[in-house]
Design a protein around this nucleic acid. Structure first.
Length: 702
RNA sequence: GGAUCUGUAGCUCAGUUGGUUAGAGCGUUCGGUUCACAUCCGAAAGGUCACAGGUUCGAGUCCUGUCAGAUCCACCA
């Protein structure tokens, strides 16, 4: 055996052995209990990041259950990642001086498809570097034809069940990405804005002062609103205001919504570009003429048409100043909604979209969790999930992307009605038998399809697979997508399959740097997992992500920790090396027994302590307290087995005491089994030294 | 404003249904070069477990309050 464990030399060969011998491949075996995990599909054309590295929890579970003798299935899937991918692709186009608008829909789709297919090998090789026991023989892609067919079928079922409806509402629209988002996909950002105080002339003479952060939207105002109890303005309710610049006449209305203390106590109402104003307009039956287009430019104003919003604001302010109506500007801290993808400030715009009626689904989901049909680990997330499900509002699933699953809905232009198919384009209109119909150009929110991922993948593998492996055992993912993904899966799963999609949910924390900061590209503190594997080995990275953490809590990943875990991998190796050398009499006999030791009672203690470790280790694995098993075994192997027992019994070993050797070996093997799910490479390497090249810990039993 | 979580050694964190002298990794100090490992070994220093009450024979652990921080959600033009 080599003096040191060298991951770079060992890992590739070991992984190849696992893969070649099909140790990761799932078979249907009615004699065994199935244990199924669906990998949260990584972006097909992306790179492995620390978030993906955290899927090591899934590998730990898979390997542990494999060693328990269960039929395990870790299903590999890749995600088309709608907006994400289109964004990356469009950036590439931009470099070539082109944009998505230079191509028709079909061409653009085809180009992105080829782009993704060409790049998906990368992420797969990186997943292998992590040592993940994924079943490579049954890879799925979220845009596979059979998956798309299932997603379409679900859409149709919801339409038929009247859970889908179209509505024109304000949506969060990114004028850069050219699509709307659901309420879950927006991020809030604090910005330093300006509150402008403007005097609006009254038709009867005089003015009413209003305060706004967006003067340009004045061009789309339909009213001015005050609180009905506000003595300052009470006498003006029902009177009219002549809007500056455009001279349009709008009424002064009253609503409790207005906070008397804020600004001037009088608000301009722009229903087409403000969520609250939109609600007010609905209530008071006012129109909502949009003055900002989907391209982010002004329209229908007769004043600043074609200008971008910012420029329009300056122009409007300039004119107001000239009129002497812009009387005050004060700094104002405010919150804007930005695109989670590109950071552009989102524009609330009226748009007709498909919505899912969420209450029936969310209520059912809540019930299933409350009944314990789905268990959440760590437990506290159950409360959080309940709250999320309670708060769900109807879900906008229309996206104006090309790269996605096209919505199988068609609009009959003569009857002005929608109909839905199972995906195929019909020969004639299903409403009037005519030919005047067009397909919705929108695609589905990726969460709508990924919300069906576990059952969809298993169904496409065949009924036998579905029957055997579904519902899946554990869904493991970061707690940051509890709302966006887990909750949607629970809702859609029960709706379509009438079962839970998974029996347990395990949520891991976020990876942070040494300063406790979340890793992000903009902060420049991202750690590339592959880089660290090259330096310290996959085992070290894996263990560093688990060691000394609490499940669901955040992980602080530092260079020191990685080094510490690399050292531990080496320690594992060297304990094996020492036992091996004793076994093969490669050590000289001890010179003399300095002191008489009670070998018998030390051995008794060793056996007892090992058994206790084993029992506790298994118990913690079952309770999803994975890191405790790693911590305990680390502590035992290093500071008890190596530092104490081996040191105490060293002379006996060198003098060829077979019983001592066997007991130490047995204790060591127990450690290897407990450690294998966490650090599969070094444990497997040393196992092979003792049991032959064709042996594997994956073939042993805990 | 609402919710959830956290506060333990210099740093990053464990600590299971309450139960002897509170632990790990890294760091610090001192000492070790013969064959398992210097990616190592031995020894040491270092904590009023945020604070104040309460329950209990017994509290880092349970309850209440205070303070500090983190995250998520909702937000006033």
């Amino acid at each position: 055996m080599d003096k040191k464990f060298i991951p770079a030399q060992a890992e590739g060969k070991i992984y190849e052995y696992w893969e070649k011998n099909k140790l990761f491949e799932a078979k249907i075996d009615p004699a065994k209990k199935p244990f199924t995990v669906i990998l949260p599909p990584p972006n097909a054309n992306g790179n492995l990041h620390m978030g993906h590295a955290m899927f090591v929890y899934e590998d730990i579970m898979i390997r542990y259950h494999k060693m328990k003798g269960e039929e395990t299935f870790w299903l590999l899937g890749l995600d088309h990642a709608g907006i994400e991918t289109q964004y990356v692709f469009e950036k590439q186009l931009q470099k070539q001086g082109k944009s998505r608008y230079d191509f028709d829909r079909e061409t653009l789709f085809k180009m992105i498809w080829e782009f993704v297919m060409a790049n998906k090998g990368n992420i797969k090789s990186q997943l292998r570097r992590m040592g993940f026991a994924l079943d490579w023989s049954k890879e799925k892609f979220t845009m596979d034809e059979d998956i798309v067919a299932i997603v379409h079928r679900t859409f149709k079922k919801m339409f038929d069940d009247k859970l889908l409806y179209r509505a024109e509402r304000l949506v969060n629209y990114c004028t850069k990405d050219g699509t709307s988002f659901s309420d879950l996909e927006v991020e809030s950002k604090d910005v330093d804005g300006i509150l402008y105080y403007i005097n609006f002339p009254l038709e009867e003479g005089g003015t009413i002062p209003i305060a706004t952060t967006r003067p340009e939207t004045m061009l789309g105002d339909v009213a001015v609103m005050v609180n009905p109890k506000d003595k300052r303005y009470k006498h003006l309710i029902g009177k009219n205001v002549r809007l500056p610049i455009t001279d349009r006449v709008v009424p002064i209305i009253a609503d409790e919504y207005v906070d008397k203390k804020f600004g001037t106590g009088a608000v301009k109402v722009t229903p087409a570009h403000d969520f609250n104003d939109f609600e007010i307009a609905k209530k008071h039956k006012l129109a909502y003429p949009p003055v900002i287009g989907f391209d982010g430019r002004m329209q229908n104003t007769g004043v600043v048409d074609g200008m971008r919003v910012k420029a329009a604001r300056e122009e409007v302010n300039k004119r107001l100043r000239e009129l002497g109506l812009l009387v005050k500007e004060t700094p104002h801290k405010m919150v804007v909604k930005v695109c989670y993808r590109c950071g552009t400030t989102l524009e609330p715009l009226p748009l007709e979209q498909w919505y899912i009626k969420i209450r029936p689904l969310a209520d059912k989901a809540n019930q299933m969790v409350a009944e314990g049909q789905i268990k959440i680990y760590p437990k506290r997330f159950q409360k959080i999930l309940k709250r999320m499900l309670d708060d769900f509002i109807d879900w906008n699933i229309s996206r104006q992307n090309v790269w996605g699953i096209r919505i199988p809905a068609f609009y009959c232009t003569s009857k002005k009605e929608w109909f839905v198919t199972d995906g195929a384009k019909p020969d004639k209109c299903m409403i009037c038998d005519g030919t005047d119909f067009v397909q919705d150009t929108d695609t589905l929110d990726t969460w709508f399809s990924s919300g069906q991922w576990p059952f969809a993948t298993l169904q496409t593998l065949g009924k036998d697979y579905y029957d055997y492996f579904y519902p899946t055992s554990v869904m493991e993912t970061g707690h940051d997508i509890l709302r966006a993904w887990i909750s949607r899966m629970i809702m859609l799963g029960s709706y379509v399959t009438d079962k839970v999609q998974f029996e347990n949910v395990f949520l891991h924390g976020m990876v942070r740097d040494g300063k406790g900061q979340k890793m992000s590209k903009s902060k420049g503190n991202v750690i590339n997992p592959i880089e660290k594997i090259d330096l310290y080995g996959a085992d070290a990275l894996r263990a560093a992500l688990i060691f000394g953490t609490k499940e669901g809590g955040d992980v602080v990943l530092t260079e020191d920790k990685l080094i510490g875990m690399r050292n531990f991998a080496n320690k594992i190796w060297n304990v094996g090396r020492f036992i091996y050398m004793c076994e093969h009499k490669e050590l000289l006999p001890a010179e003399q027994a300095v002191e008489k030791k009670d070998v018998g009672s030390i051995l008794k203690e060793l056996v007892k302590e090992t058994a206790a470790l084993d029992k506790k280790g298994i118990k913690n694995m079952e309770a999803y307290h994975f890191s405790r098993t790693l911590d305990d075994t680390h502590q035992f192997l290093w500071h008890r087995l190596a530092d104490y027992y081996i040191e105490e019994l060293k002379d006996e070993l060198r003098n060829g005491n077979i019983e001592v050797l066997e007991k130490l070996k047995s204790s060591y093997f127990s450690c290897l089994k407990l450690l294998h799910p966490f650090m599969p490479f070094v444990t497997e390497a040393v196992w092979k030294v003792f049991h032959g090249e064709d042996s594997s810990l994956l073939k042993t039993r805990v």
